[in-house]
C-alpha cells in the first residue's frame, strides 16, 4: 500500500509540474460553460452581426435546464474525450519509450501498483475537472434557463463520471498494449466512437451500454428519478472498467517481460 501511495503521489506531482492539473480543469470548465452561454446569446450575436435579411423572422427555441446541461455534457463527450485521449496517451507508453520505466520496474515494484496508481491519478484529475465543469455549467444554466437542484448535478456527475472513467481505462489499456502514443490516442477515440455507434444503432436493445449513460442522465434530470437502466448501465460500466484493468495488468506483465532489448 505504501508503494502504491508513492507511485500515485509521483503521478500527481508530475501532472502538477507539467500543468495538467491547471489546464485540464480550465478546459473542461470552458467546454461545459461556453455551451449555455453561447446558446443564450446566439440571437443577440446574430442580430448584432446583422446577418439576417430584412423581414426574416428569427426564432430560436430556448432549451430547458435539463437540455442545457445535456448540451454541456455533449461538449465533454466530444472534445472532452479528445482531451482525455491526448493527456493519457503516453502515461505508460511514454515511460517505456524513454526508458525510464527500466529504472522503476527494476525496483521491487508490483505491476498492479504501477498501473492502478497511474489509472487512479488520471481518474482523480478527470473527475475533479468534470465536477468543476458541471458546477460552472450549472451556474450559467440556472442564470439563463432555469433552476436545477444540486442533487441533479451530483447525480449527473456521478454517472457521467463513470463514462469518463471508462474512457480513461480504455486509454490505459491501450497504453500497456501499444507502444506508439499516436496509435494509443487513435485507438482510444476509435473505441469510444465504436461503442457509441453500436449503441446508437441498437439503442433500445443495448440500454445498459455505457454509451447510453448520458441518455439516461437526461431522463433522470427530467423525471427526477434514477431510471433502472441507468443503474444497469452504471453496473456494466464498472464491470468493464474492472475487466479492462485486469486485462491491462495481465498484458503489461507478459508484454514487458518479453520485450526485446534494444
Amino acid at each position: 500500500m505504501q508503494q502504491w501511495i508513492i507511485l500515485f503521489r509521483k503521478e500527481i506531482q508530475e501532472n502538477i509540474r507539467n500543468f495538467k492539473w491547471m489546464w485540464v480543469p480550465l478546459v473542461f470548465i470552458l467546454l461545459a460553460a461556453m455551451e449555455p452561454v453561447t446558446t443564450y446569446y446566439m440571437p443577440t450575436i446574430l442580430k448584432a452581426a446583422g446577418g439576417l435579411p430584412e423581414g426574416a423572422v428569427f426564432e430560436m427555441p430556448m432549451p430547458n435546464p435539463a437540455e442545457a446541461i445535456m448540451m454541456s455534457l455533449a461538449q465533454l463527450s466530444s472534445l472532452g474525450v479528445l482531451v482525455i485521449a491526448l493527456i493519457s496517451m503516453g502515461t505508460i507508453a511514454g515511460e517505456r519509450k524513454s526508458g525510464v520505466s527500466e529504472l522503476i520496474l527494476v525496483k521491487p515494484v508490483s505491476y498492479f501498483n504501477y498501473i492502478t496508481a497511474k489509472w487512479a491519478s488520471y481518474i482523480l484529475l478527470l473527475l475533479t475537472s468534470l465536477l468543476l465543469a458541471l458546477l460552472a455549467s450549472w451556474y450559467y444554466v440556472t442564470l439563463f434557463f432555469g433552476s436545477l437542484t444540486i442533487t441533479h448535478i451530483l447525480g449527473a456527475f456521478l454517472f457521467y463520471g463513470l463514462w469518463l472513467s471508462l474512457i480513461v481505462t480504455i486509454s490505459i489499456f491501450y497504453n500497456a498494449w501499444i507502444s506508439s502514443q499516436g496509435a494509443i490516442a487513435a485507438a482510444t477515440i476509435g473505441t469510444v466512437i465504436l461503442i457509441s455507434t453500436v449503441t446508437s444503432v441498437f439503442g433500445t436493445k443495448l440500454s445498459w451500454s455505457p454509451a447510453n449513460i448520458s441518455g439516461h442522465i437526461h431522463e433522470m434530470l427530467i423525471t427526477n428519478a434514477v431510471p433502472s437502466a441507468l443503474y444497469g448501465a452504471a453496473g456494466l460500466t464498472i464491470l468493464c472498467i474492472i475487466c479492462l484493468l485486469i486485462g491491462t495488468i495481465f498484458i503489461f506483465q507478459t508484454k514487458y517481460a518479453s520485450r526485446k532489448s534494444e
Partner: peptide, 13 residues
C-alpha cells in the same frame, strides 16, 4: 469568470 478562465489558460501556456 469565463473570460478570466480563458485568460488564465493563455497565461499558463
Amino acid at each position: 469568470p469565463l473570460l478570466v478562465i480563458q485568460g488564465l489558460l493563455i497565461l499558463i501556456a
